[in-house]
């Protein structure tokens, strides 16, 4: 099973998914992220899925789960780079990702986290 690497950039954890995710990798990523947020005290998580060709209900549910876990550690989650075909399919599938924040690309995702982070410190 392949593991998805997690990078730390300042106070943000970056997860860039470059592989065809199997369910075990999804579960492992959730665990690794919980571990990493707690150990680094990161204030945000960016999940870059611009290379992901399909998101089924299992992967889609992961985004919501990661967002919920992050929230417990007072961190925000942004999913960036979802492809149009993937978005259309998710809507048809009936999955809305419930409250997970999204952005067009990595740069905008980081900007959103920056704004949210400032709001928290104030």
């Amino acid at each position: 099973m392949e593991r998805v690497p997690i990078l730390k950039i300042g106070g943000v954890l970056l997860v860039s998914i470059q592989i065809d995710l199997q369910d075990q990798s999804v579960l492992a990523l959730q665990e690794d992220l919980a571990e990493k947020i707690s150990s680094t005290g990161a204030h945000g998580v960016v999940i870059d899925i611009s290379a992901v060709e399909i998101v089924d209900s299992f992967i889609g549910r992961m985004f919501a789960t990661i967002a919920s876990i992050s929230r417990l550690f007072d961190a925000d989650t942004v999913v960036v780079g979802m492809r149009p075909a993937v978005a259309i399919t998710l809507v048809e599938l009936g999955l809305t990702l419930g409250g997970v924040r999204t952005a067009l690309d990595l740069e905008r995702g980081m900007k959103i986290l920056g704004q949210l982070g400032r709001g928290r410190d104030a």
Binding site: A87, L90, V91, T96, L104
Partner: peptide
């Protein structure tokens, strides 16, 4: 409606 929701998933 679906388009609006899909765009939102993409961050727009």
């Amino acid at each position: 409606l679906k388009t609006v929701v899909a765009a939102r998933l993409m961050g727009a």
